[in-house]
């Protein structure tokens, strides 16, 4: 256990960059949104807040940083006699902690957003409408869930690159694309679109944004470990 914490600390030895960078990007995106809404200059916004999808930015940045966890931190850590197993386990620990931390931070931002009436401009970047009426825990978990999914997706992509190089990543992306297209074709062919929409509309936010992403994240974590077994720094 202590070794695990040590290896996690190696991954966070420059925590300012590792944990701070996605937050910095988030703040910049928020600033950009405020600027845009000021520029548009709607004196009184229409009924309800305008929802922006800008929150997605921090999830994407987190995915990219975890690709680098594998392409840069992994070879370094193995150079320090860390085992692959320890490294992947420690990365999982970091991912869980980070998801929870960001979940709390986004929740705090949503409180701030509400208190300021959508940053004085009536737009919603954090306080998402489908979370209306949810309790604190649900809110934090809903913000945290997608981080798990995307972080482990980043880790797996990174270790695929580490093991099979560029061709491996292309194969992964193509396979993923084929899977999506195949699923869509299947749904269209079977005429399941209505059921799919219903699923997304009716599934509780906690399941849809926290439980399911976390489950997929765990599967991706397993893939990451298996791929790392024969990856060479």
């Amino acid at each position: 256990m202590t070794q695990l914490v040590k290896v996690a600390r190696i991954q966070l030895v420059n925590a300012r960059m590792v944990l701070g960078m996605p937050l910095l990007v988030l703040v910049c995106v928020l600033a950009a949104n405020i600027a845009i809404f000021v520029a548009i200059g709607t004196a009184s916004p229409p009924e309800g807040a305008t929802v922006t999808g800008a929150l997605v930015s921090i999830y994407i940045v987190t995915l990219v940083t975890h690709v680098q966890t594998m392409t840069q931190m992994f070879p370094f850590a193995l150079g320090l006699s860390v085992t692959r197993r320890e490294f992947v386990a420690a990365a999982g620990l970091v991912v869980f902690g980070q998801a929870l931390l960001y979940g709390v931070i986004i929740w705090l931002m949503s409180l701030l957003e509400r208190a300021t009436g959508g940053w004085g401009l009536g737009f919603a970047m954090f306080d998402l409408p489908f979370l209306e009426g949810s309790n604190v825990v649900t809110r934090i978990l809903v913000y945290a869930g997608p981080f798990l999914l995307l972080s482990f997706a980043g880790l797996w992509t990174g270790i695929v690159y580490q093991r099979w190089g560029q061709p491996g990543v292309w194969a992964l992306v193509l396979a993923f694309g084929a899977l999506v297209v195949g699923l869509m074709a299947l749904i269209g062919w079977q005429g399941w679109w209505q059921q799919v929409f219903d699923f997304f509309a009716e599934t509780p936010a906690l399941l849809l944004f926290a439980v399911y992403p976390a489950l997929i994240g765990v599967v991706l974590a397993a893939f990451t470990y298996l791929t790392s077994r024969r990856a060479v720094p």
Binding site: N14, V18, Q68, Q72, P75, F76, G79, L80, S81
Partner: peptide, 13 residues
């Protein structure tokens, strides 16, 4: 402890 000439370090270090 294995020190190699080709050791890479993370860019953020």
């Amino acid at each position: 402890c294995f020190i190699k000439e080709s050791q890479r370090y993370p860019d953020i270090f």
